[in-house]
């Protein structure tokens, strides 16, 4: 069953096409990959899914509803982890979660019981009372994930979750995301790390300049293009020029 359907999804900004007639579906329980170089339209698509941007044309349905007109009910069931951490660094992880909980109408106690499970899972519990500015980059990212999971979302949107992390932190993150998925949360993940997509995604699309240029499971794509790994498929399809968008 698809919990997210995009049909000919298109977004223009003053004549510039950021997302161009993109079709995809995310099935329940799946980790779906959204791959593309910088400027491919990944973040724009994420913003349309949580209703902060209106599509120019095409159809977008999240849990069977167009998100723009149903922001409240859609976002209640959605978790979002932004590309750059949006955290209050001068206060603790707990304070950050309590503030996040308020946006969903949770009391401090409600946030506490859910937060304890999340902080424990994401290996932050023993430092949860410390100010966030003392955290490493990996810890901040994991706290962002905890924020995104606080409302027990059915679908978690992850916008480049491991950009800027060292290999150890990245590996820990991947394992944690696998755990999130095993706990029953569907995931839509944008990334330009092909290893990440190979490790996590059941199904993926590669987009460039707002258009889909390939789709399938990581394994199927590697086979189809006769490459050693997904990285090669990606470079084959998107070209080797540097992107400065």
């Amino acid at each position: 069953m698809a919990i997210l359907i995009a049909e000919k999804l298109t977004k223009y900004f003053d004549g510039f096409c950021a997302v161009n007639a993109v079709d995809f579906e995310v099935a329940k329980g799946q980790c779906f990959g959204f791959l593309g170089p910088n400027g491919a339209g990944k973040t724009t698509t994420i913003k349309m899914i949580y209703g902060a941007l209106a599509p120019t044309s095409g159809r977008l349905q999240v849990f069977g509803l167009p998100p723009q007109e149903n922001r409240r009910s859609v976002n209640r069931r959605l978790g979002v982890v932004h590309q750059k951490d949006i955290l209050e660094e001068t206060v603790s992880a707990w304070d950050n979660l309590i503030m996040q909980g308020r946006y969903y109408g949770f009391s401090k106690q409600q946030t506490h019981s859910r937060g304890e499970f999340l902080l424990n899972m994401l290996q932050l519990l023993d430092r949860a009372d410390e100010s966030v500015f003392r955290y490493s980059g990996g810890m901040k990212r994991r706290l962002s994930i905890a924020k995104g999971l606080l409302n027990e979302p059915e679908l978690l949107l992850l916008d480049e979750p491991t950009t800027g992390l060292d290999p150890q932190a990245r590996l820990l993150m991947w394992n944690k995301l696998k755990e999130v998925k095993q706990n029953g949360t569907s995931i839509l993940l944008t990334t330009h790390y092909m290893h990440e997509a190979e490790f996590l995604c059941d199904d993926l699309i590669i987009i460039d300049h707002g258009k889909i240029i390939a789709r399938g499971s990581p394994k199927a794509l590697i086979e189809k293009y006769g490459c050693k790994n997904l990285e090669e498929v990606f470079l084959e399809l998107t070209g080797r020029e540097l992107r400065d968008e």
């Binding site: 209703g51 902060a52 209640r76 959605l78 932004h82 946006y103 969903y104």
Partner: peptide
Amino acid sequence: YNRVYDGVLATPVN
């Protein structure tokens, strides 16, 4: 700078 509203807009708050 802190992008607080980007975060809030991803929640049910409009």
